[in-house]
Design a protein around this nucleic acid. Sequence first.
DNA 1: CCCTGATTCGC
DNA 2: GCGAATCAGG
Length: 227
Amino acid sequence: MAMEWTEETIARLRELWQQGLSTAEIGRQLSVTKNAVVGKAHRLGLQARPSPIRRPPASARAAESAGAVAPTLEPVASAPVASPVSPAAPVAAVAVAPQAAAPVAAPVVAPVAPHVAEAAPSVAPVRQEPAPRAPVRAETETVAGVAPPPPVATPSVSRPETSRASLRAVSSPAPRRSGLSCCWPLGDPGTPGFHFCGATPVPGKPYCAEHAQLAYVKLRDRRDNVA
DNA sequence: CCCTGATTCGC
DNA sequence: GCGAATCAGG
């Protein structure tokens, strides 16, 4: 049976995707494979993220084999690109870090940051080298002007060396979307009793105060547990 | 080897 | 529409 992409799941997918989580990460949280995530994201027309690889378009390959004449991209006639430097520079600076030049910081909104992507909402995907996977940074999302990070205090989290294999911990489901109610998923998605919290979310966040704490405590992982 | 994401194509 | 298989770069 094909995965049921309900409004909620799609919303979650969108949310996580926008947060910059890796497809595999999203897949784990949604209990689907990364392929499913990528496929769906693509179908949804979500903005593609910087692909680690470059692939010749199928059409190109097909055309090539077909012996069709190369389309030739025209002389440089059009250079509408203008200088990407205009907005790019300033924007990048702002988006990346208003003050912190640290490559790893993402002060913006990177709740469950997978690998510290700059996750700039609707901004040029500047994310380049995502640091060798942040070990375990108690990243309490510091949303500007929003509730002071509650005593998130999660020192209890053991530090599994640098081994990524040990990165398995409980995780935070991930929700979003509702505009007016907390989307924290309760129960198992797909099962009868499943529902969302529904409480009033804190301004600027998809979750209510309580769940926001759980959601932004920097948890990720959970390979095939969930259920 | 691990990871990543994109595309293809049978279902 | 879905997603496993496959591809391909880091």
